[in-house]
Computed example of a mutant assay.
Amino acid sequence: MTAPLFKGVITALITPLRDGNVDEDALIRLLERQIAAGVHGVVAVGTTGEGGGLTIEEHKRVTSICVETSAGRIKVIAGAGSPATYESIDLARHGKTCGADASLVVTPYYNRPSQAGLVAHFEAVADAVELPLILYNVPARTGVDLSNENVAHLAAHPNIVALKDATGDMSRVSWMHANIGANGGQFDLMSGDDHSALGHMAHGGTGVISVTSNVAPEAMVALYNAAAAGDYATARSWQDRLIGLHKALFLDASPAPAKYALAKLGLCSEEMRLPMLPTCDAAKPGIDAALVAAGVI
């Protein structure tokens, strides 16, 4: 099996807002902080980047800024999720044009297509754009669950190279590791769930697309490096330190808690775009305590 294309800590980067607009200066600061911390990549305008709340023009602008600023130092994955296949194709094409390393395409949400419809959606995007495509399965958000067998089917497409799995089900990554790579081909298995990312890697995963690394990138990189080296005692010690933060960043609707934490660090504002709201007061003490426990502040 060849070396993974996508591995390590890839941050699902928030999109900072100020006065109703994308705060481009803050975006660049956040990206440079990620690069300095040693992350392996970022996702521009995924779910955590409020892809559903930005205009198409803003979406494309943020992706372009991430590509231009990173200048090849880390991988940039263009969020291309949409309930409409034509829009996913448009966003993936922009990712290709601006120089992104891949596109991340979530299962279409709200309209709940059949398994055959999911396969047709991903194949249409992969056929239309010659750019590596990462499947994203997050049933809790989208209302549909891409089956293991259809992940395996899609993995045979030359442009479909990885899966971001946010189900938290370790049996799924074990099945995929055993079955999809059995023919010697390469298909990368990324966790999309910080809570279970360590277990995911132990079962054959290649890394994590992380919300927590927005706030604690160095710690997440240390956790990954230990796990990748087979030093699970050290990896568990990092997980013990971070588990409170993993949970605290979902005490309110994500990414509001991450923005609250980053605002406490002076890196951006808490501003969200409706229907999302800034973190509620009830959640703030829990986030504050988790930041201290994780050594962030």
Rank of each mutant, 00 (worst) to 15 (best):
Q186W: 07
C280S: 07
A78M: 03
G207W: 07
A37V: 07
P132H: 14
S103H: 01
D127L: 03
V173S: 15
D194P: 10
P255Y: 00
N21M: 15
G199F: 03
E32L: 01
A102G: 07
E270N: 09
A80S: 15
E123A: 03
G143I: 08
V76E: 05
K96G: 02
G205Q: 08
N159A: 14
S82D: 12
F250Y: 09
M170V: 14
Y232D: 00
A120W: 05
N148L: 10
T48E: 06
V43S: 13
L13R: 06
L163P: 10
L31I: 04
P132L: 08
A166E: 03
S147D: 12
H121D: 11
G199S: 12
M1D: 09
G117K: 12
G117R: 05
S196R: 08
T47D: 10
V119T: 14
E87S: 12
N148K: 08
S237G: 10
C98K: 00
H203V: 00
I28K: 09
A290P: 03
G79K: 00
H153S: 09
P217T: 05
A222H: 05
L274G: 05
L135I: 13
Y136N: 05
A156L: 10
A219G: 14
G20P: 03
T234W: 14
I14W: 03
P217W: 01
A253S: 15
E50Q: 15
G41E: 15
A124L: 06
L135T: 00
G41C: 11
L133T: 15
L131Q: 10
A78F: 02
A36Y: 02
I243K: 13
A263I: 04
A84R: 12
V45E: 13
A12Y: 02
P158T: 06
E218F: 00
G81D: 10
I65G: 00
L54P: 10
T234P: 00
A3W: 03
L27Y: 03
Q115Y: 03
A80V: 11
D101T: 12
K264E: 09
D145N: 15
E24P: 14
R141H: 01
V211I: 11
L265N: 07
A100E: 10
H121C: 13
F122E: 07
M220S: 01
A290Q: 04
I35H: 05
A44E: 08
D188M: 02
D288E: 02
H121E: 12
P285K: 12
L30V: 09
G52P: 02
G81R: 02
V138H: 11
A71Y: 06
Y232I: 09
V151Y: 10
A166M: 04
A156K: 13
H200K: 01
R141N: 01
A202N: 14
P278S: 11
G143A: 08
I89L: 02
L17F: 14
P139N: 07
M276F: 11
H153V: 09
T142C: 01
G205C: 02
E149L: 05
